[in-house]
Simulated scan of single mutants.
Amino acid sequence: MGFFSELNGRVVGGPSILAADFAHLADEVRRAQAGGAEVVHFDAMDNHFVPNLTVGPVVARSLVAAIDIPVDAHLMVENPDNLIPMFVEAGVASISVQPEAVTHLHRTLKMIKGGGVEAGVALNPTTPPEAIEWAVPYLDYVLVMSVDPGFGGQKFIEEMVEKVRRVRELYGLPVQVDGGITAETAPLMVEAGAQVLIAGSAVYKTGDPAGEMRRILEAGRAAHRG
């Protein structure tokens, strides 16, 4: 069992550390946790698959040891197979990879699940949901990117609402969304079938991570109930 397999229809959320203060990372996560965050999204970027360079397994290990909510790693990297064993050893709860960057997706997902963590795929905005049809038996969740990966603070791509709906209709897996998620866009994604709301800039650029995390979750859950 794991975080995604135990959602049971709930709408949950968490911060993306991409927008956090890296000098006080654990404290930044706790501030969002005070607003109801139940997971933390850990973006690893390599300056090859995306035009940015962030953090890796060493930082993940430190963060896992310092907080008490699961760490969900999103590997926006070429050759993720090289890093998966190190992220597993670091103690993350789940790992998603970009199918656009993977040569043998079946092998990669089996590697993740073989390490005892949940496996996901992250779909770029123009990658069709149908591209992962034959990977579904090895997946625990799907991450729909609602911006182009690589940078925080980008504008929400409205067409991704329908993409979330399509993913849910096709596969019935938990859908995580990341990119431009705010109290205004969260309800749109939840109405389409998203369950895990990841927000970065919206949470950390306001000066009130707890308050903004709470607003996003309340807006999403209201849409879920409605």
Rank of each mutant, 00 (worst) to 15 (best):
M1E: 10
F3W: 02
F3H: 01
V12S: 12
V12I: 12
I17L: 04
L18P: 02
H24W: 02
H24T: 09
D27K: 00
R31Q: 14
Q33I: 04
Q33P: 03
Q33Y: 12
G35I: 05
E38S: 09
M45Y: 11
L53E: 00
V58G: 00
V59D: 06
A60I: 01
A60P: 06
S62P: 05
L63A: 06
V64T: 09
A65H: 14
A66C: 06
D68A: 15
D72W: 05
D72E: 15
H74C: 04
E78D: 10
N79T: 13
D81V: 09
I84V: 14
M86E: 03
V88K: 10
V88S: 01
A90L: 08
A90M: 12
V92G: 06
A93F: 07
I95D: 05
I95C: 10
Q98W: 02
H104K: 13
L105T: 09
H106R: 15
K110T: 10
K110F: 09
I112E: 15
K113C: 14
K113P: 10
V117G: 00
E118C: 07
V121F: 05
L123T: 07
N124G: 11
T126P: 11
I132Q: 10
I132P: 04
E133V: 08
D140Q: 08
Y141R: 08
L143V: 05
V147G: 01
D148A: 09
G153I: 06
Q154K: 13
K155G: 01
I157T: 08
E158N: 15
M160W: 01
R166Q: 11
V167H: 14
V167L: 13
E169Y: 07
G172Y: 01
G172E: 00
V175T: 03
Q176R: 12
V177H: 14
D178L: 10
E184N: 02
M189T: 12
E191D: 06
L197T: 00
G200R: 05
S201A: 11
Y204H: 03
D208N: 11
A210P: 01
M213C: 05
A219V: 07
G220H: 10
R225T: 00
